[in-house]
Amino acid sequence: MVTRVSYKTVRKLKNALFVSVLSAMTSLAVLPLLSLLWSIGFHGIAALVSLSGAPLSRGVASAVLVNALAQSLVTTASSAVIAVSLGVAAAIYSSQYAGLRVGRVIRFTVDILSGAPSILAGMVLFALLSGVSSLTAGVLALVLCMLPVVVRTADQVLVAVPVAYIEGSLALGASRIQTIFATVLPIAHKSLITALLFVTARMAGEAAPLLIILDGGTASKGGRWFQPLPLRLYSDLTHGGSFPHQIAYVEALILLVTIVTIYGLARWIGRPDRW
């Protein structure tokens, strides 16, 4: 009897240890995020305040920042439009038209491509457009990055539409097109928009694919005119600038706020309620 009581205690202790180790590890997982948000939030706001105190630097800095942000929005928006229209079209094909085998081939290819590092997209465009720096090349690089991810997620959302609805619509005499536009897309649109916004949020912060094209181009042209925000931030970090660190914090803060906003929007649109 004595051994049994003590074994009970051992089990309880083990379980308590288990719970505390898990809690500790979980805190450890959240710690870096808090550190990141804190440092960027704190220093970013501090830098914003101190920069706005100095009229001259404020003018320069804000012009540069506004420019970078505007370019970011333009590049992200245009690449998103292209990638989403192409990608969703491809996903409609793979989910609604393709047979089993063709569908599998498409999914496999897209899966493999979506796992590739984003920096490679920049390299490819850099080679294809033979070193020409341009907005077009940058946008195309982002499109190349986004496309497989868009197809994969959109396909997954569309495939999840219950076959019963599709068959119901076809049984009523609707054509394929009518079924897609009147049944499939209306059912899937919310999850689709959410998923696509997530992809866009991630693309909005991508510097790697733009890096080679635009950095290479600016190096040869000696100008820094075309620099979307992520890229501008990266070059501020590597080359240093007239406002070391401070400006980087400000840029990081703006980028973070922008992306978390898109993310929040995506979550809000995709919030669970009645189907």
Binding site: S39, A201, A207, L233, L237, A252, L255, I259
Partner: peptide, 10 residues
């Protein structure tokens, strides 16, 4: 969803 360049700053 935090971009890698922001991780870079940190």
């Amino acid at each position: 969803v935090i971009p890698s360049v922001v991780y870079g700053v940190w």
